[in-house]
């Protein structure tokens, strides 16, 4: 049985998922919460109606974009925890361009296009900052990135309460919403935009081919696997690390742009919605393989949307979804460790 490693791996992964579910269930029992009803509500709340499914897809878009970007930095051996701030900067740049041109004579379609482009550049610049701190300043990308995340949040708050505040007084509900012609076109009666969906799917496909099918992707992975060996083989290492940051920033910035043009239609204080950190979890769970990113991100988006119901129906905190999302990754990591330690070539 164990000789057939593909099936053995699948079985082991399945065991990890079951253990995560079991532990989450035990936690609910300990908190006097009804687990079966909670799971039923999450499923109903995510796939129960077309409206719900469209909301799941809407949340899938920024998550998938972020994960796509993170696959590039992870392949290069970089822990781009600053992705959260890169989403925020993407959103800020998008809002800035929308505000700049909203009263001009330019066609709305072009304004939206330019604003998304600006979002990508904004994210890429913020990522390059973390990259520069890492490559030229010797500051570990985790700490530089975390600091930049906080700075990005401060910048958002300052803009919302300062220069970009609503007529009257600034508030936590964000900036003045943009008029509907500056929204990405939506499917009638649903919040979902085909354009945003198309961008997200195209991105993950592009990243898959970049990492699997190009020489550039191969060199990125070489830098990630063995920095010194790559350097000795003549691969310009710091340039590849900077490139990985820059590319990841483009996708994170695009996620921020989607949050503005396709989801909130304004800048809000928590514009990133934690998709950066969630994207890190998704990337870890798929073991940095692009092929699995789309379905796993969809599952995580479904957990996010499904758990919104919990406080209303069961008076349960919606952070339950976060517990399950984290437990899954934790058990997959641990089970992988057990497999390597105890089941190797038995």
């Amino acid at each position: 049985m164990l000789k057939n490693t593909r099936w053995a791996n699948l079985l082991i992964q399945l065991a990890a998922v079951l253990m995560a579910l079991l532990l989450t269930t035990l936690i609910m029992l300990a908190a006097d919460a009804p687990p079966l009803e909670a799971y039923a509500n999450i499923i109903k709340g995510s796939f129960g109606s077309l409206d719900r499914i469209s909301k799941v897809l809407l949340s899938w878009i920024p998550l998938l974009l972020t994960t796509a970007g993170l696959l590039i930095t992870f392949s290069t051996g970089l822990w781009n925890i600053g992705v959260e701030g890169q989403i925020v900067l993407g959103a800020i740049a998008t809002t800035w361009v929308l505000r700049l041109f909203q009263d001009s004579a330019i066609a709305p379609g072009w304004i939206i296009f330019l604003s998304i482009l600006a979002g990508m550049i904004g994210g890429a610049i913020w990522a390059s900052l973390a990259g520069a701190l890492k490559t030229f300043g010797g500051v570990n990308e985790i700490f530089g990135g975390l600091g930049l995340n906080f700075v990005a949040t401060a910048l958002t708050l300052w803009l919302i309460f300062g220069p970009w505040k609503r007529p009257g007084v600034g508030s936590m509900s964000g900036t003045q919403p943009f008029p509907e012609e500056l929204w990405l076109p939506q499917i009638p009666d649903y919040d979902l935009s085909y354009w945003a969906l198309g961008l997200a799917i195209a991105s993950i496909v592009a990243v898959y081919f970049l990492l699997q099918g190009t020489y550039f992707g191969l060199r990125l992975k070489a830098v990630g696997k063995n920095f010194r060996a790559a350097h000795l083989l003549g691969i310009p290492t710091w340039q590849h690390m900077m490139a990985a940051f820059f590319l990841c920033g483009i996708f994170a910035g695009a996620a921020g742009a989607m949050q503005v043009t396709a989801v909130y239609h304004r800048l809000i204080p928590s514009i990133s919605s934690g998709y950066g950190y969630l994207g890190l979890l998704v990337a870890m769970l798929v073991n940095y393989q692009a092929i699995w990113a789309a379905p796993v991100a969809l599952f995580y988006a479904a957990l996010n949307i499904g758990s919104i119901q919990l406080p209303i129906v069961l008076k349960m905190d919606s952070s339950l979804s976060g517990v399950l999302q984290g437990m899954l990754v934790l058990f997959v990591l641990m089970v992988e460790g057990i497999r390597q330690r105890y089941l190797r070539r038995t």
Binding site: I27, A30, A31, I81, Y277, L280, L281, M284, M316, D317, S319, L320, S321, G322, V323, Q325, G326, M327, V329, L330, L333
Partner: peptide, 16 residues
């Protein structure tokens, strides 16, 4: 990193 996420959400869930 995973533990930091799990513990945070767990504290919100159990602390309700």
């Amino acid at each position: 990193f995973v533990l930091t996420m799990v513990c945070r959400d767990l504290s919100y869930f159990l602390g309700n």
